[in-house]
Amino acid sequence: MTRPPKIPESVLVVIHTPALEVLLIERADRPGYWQSVTGSKDALDEPLLSTCIREVAEETGIVVGSPDVPMAALRDWQLANVYEIYPVWRHRYAPGVTHNTEHVFGLTVPAGTPVVLSPREHLRHQWLPWREAADRCFSPSNAEAILHLPRWRRPAAD
């Protein structure tokens, strides 16, 4: 059965602790490529928040909306990146599609939050200080998003 083409609109979710330790996951299809959670919309009308919640659960096992990770922990950073899709992944999209729009979100989780990877998608995970995490990302837009993280830190009273 042939898969439908991917929708060229996606989310990037920077998962981090209050101390700004960032979760990175290593791609199974490209060992050595570290990234935050990413994923395309499943349908044109799928809300971006729904895409975030689904992708975070699928890729990390973290459930947004649970007692440990309430919905308020997921924040739309109101940033969008338009980038050229890497040629190695272009076959997943409709013919002629060369660019993707990526919407950036942050998700604050407690330190020690367990991570359960989808072995089909990712090999390993690691928590790194935010600057080190930015340096480790293969994607320039992912690295740039992580470098914005300190400005999105919630005050301690939240």
Rank of each mutant, 00 (worst) to 15 (best):
T101D: 03
E84D: 07
S40K: 01
V56E: 05
A133H: 03
P95Y: 10
D42I: 00
Q126Y: 02
R54H: 15
L107T: 09
C137V: 13
T113L: 06
N81D: 12
A111S: 11
A73S: 14
D135I: 07
W89A: 03
I53V: 15
V82S: 05
C52P: 09
V97I: 11
G32T: 05
E84V: 12
L107S: 10
V88S: 06
L74R: 12
F105L: 08
I53S: 03
F105M: 09
H91Q: 10
G61W: 07
V109E: 05
A111Q: 14
Y86C: 03
I85R: 13
V97E: 01
Y33Q: 03
E121Y: 14
G39A: 08
R92T: 09
G61P: 05
S40A: 13
C137S: 03
V82M: 06
L128Q: 03
H99A: 07
P110L: 08
G32D: 11
A80Y: 00
L49Y: 15
Y93S: 02
V109L: 04
R120D: 13
A80E: 10
A80K: 09
P70T: 10
F138K: 02
P31F: 09
P47E: 15
L117R: 04
W34N: 02
P129C: 07
I85M: 07
T113R: 04
P95N: 09
P31G: 09
D68E: 15
V64H: 14
G96Y: 13
E102W: 00
H91L: 03
A28D: 00
P119C: 13
P31Y: 08
V56I: 09
T51N: 11
L123G: 00
N100L: 05
E102H: 00
G39F: 15
D29Q: 06
R136K: 08
G96D: 10
L128H: 02
N81M: 11
L79P: 12
C137Y: 08
L74T: 14
L74K: 13
A80P: 04
A80R: 13
G39Q: 04
P129H: 08
P114G: 07
A43W: 14
D45G: 01
G61Q: 10
S40T: 06
H122F: 04
L44E: 11
A80L: 11
A94R: 02
Y86D: 11
E102I: 02
L128G: 02
F138Q: 03
D76Y: 14
G112N: 14
F138L: 02
H99M: 07
P47F: 04
L128D: 00
R124Q: 08
L49A: 12
R30Y: 00
V109K: 06
L79C: 05
Y93N: 01
V116D: 03
H122C: 02
T101F: 05
P95I: 07
D42G: 14
S66A: 12
Y83D: 09
L49Q: 14
I53W: 01
L117N: 01
T60D: 13
V88I: 12
W77S: 14
V37K: 12
A73H: 10
Y33H: 13
T98E: 15
L48T: 08
D45K: 04
V64Q: 15
G65C: 05
Q126V: 14
S118Q: 01
R92H: 09
R27P: 04
V97P: 06
F138N: 03
I62P: 10
R54I: 04
A72P: 01
Y86V: 07
W130V: 01
H125F: 14
W77R: 09
N81V: 15
E102F: 00
Y33T: 03
V82F: 13
A43M: 06
A73R: 08
I25M: 13
